[in-house]
């Protein structure tokens, strides 16, 4: 069995989005998630010699990221007083006397299962995206996920609109097939 190799120069292109989605599912804060991904890369660099090549680079980075996420929650909870659960009947005098029932969470809130499914789906999409040729993946990402205008992408990548649509078509076909195999 061939051993996995490590190449930090490609980390951002290959794994940044994947790690970011993993983080955002657990920490609902864009800036913090970005910082944690960045920290993960830097920590990965430092402990690169410990990489034995038994797992893939991505699995290895995820395992670092998991520690970072746990550390983050520890840190915010160790700030004095934050860890204790405060149950006040009401904090402001205005709602004094309102029923507690009125304060329960929205019944239409997302359930835990939905969140989990969404996260798995996000990972499946990233897996499929990483199997596409680089150019197709880039165009697909810009157009479908980030939702840029056709013109903007054409200018940035220096391609014609008809060229863009051909790439999009190929990418969409490949993505649909890949997701069909792995998700539906």
């Amino acid at each position: 069995m061939s051993k996995h190799t490590i190449n930090p120069n490609k980390w951002v292109d290959l794994y940044a989005d994947y790690l970011y989605n993993y983080t955002i599912a657990r920490i609902n804060d864009k800036d913090v998630a970005q910082d944690l991904v960045q920290d993960t890369f830097l920590a990965g660099l430092k402990s690169m010699k410990n990489f034995k090549g038994e797992a893939s680079e991505r699995t290895w980075l995820i395992s670092i990221l998991k520690r970072k996420i746990i550390d983050y929650y520890r840190k915010i909870n160790s700030n004095k007083g934050k860890a204790e659960v405060r149950i006040n009947y009401s904090e402001d005098s205005e709602s004094d006397g309102d029923w507690l029932e009125e304060r329960v969470a929205d019944a239409f809130d997302k359930t835990a299962q939905d969140t989990m499914e969404n996260e798995e789906l996000g990972q499946a999409i990233h897996n499929c995206l990483s199997k596409l040729p680089k150019k197709q993946a880039e165009v697909f990402r810009l157009k479908t996920i980030e939702g840029h205008e056709t013109e903007v992408i054409c200018n940035e990548l220096n391609i014609t609109p008809s060229n863009l649509w051909v790439i999009i078509h190929r990418a969409r076909t490949a993505m649909a097939n890949c997701l069909k195999e792995n998700w539906f």
């Binding site: 980390w11 951002v12 940044a16 989005d17 991904v37 890369f41 996000g122």
Partner: peptide
């Protein structure tokens, strides 16, 4: 794809990450 609410880091952010690395 809409349902997954997938998101990506923007280009500037990735560039700065690359620089730091």
């Amino acid at each position: 794809i809409e349902k997954s609410k997938i998101c990506c880091l923007d280009k500037a952010c990735k560039e700065s990450m690359k620089k730091q690395i």
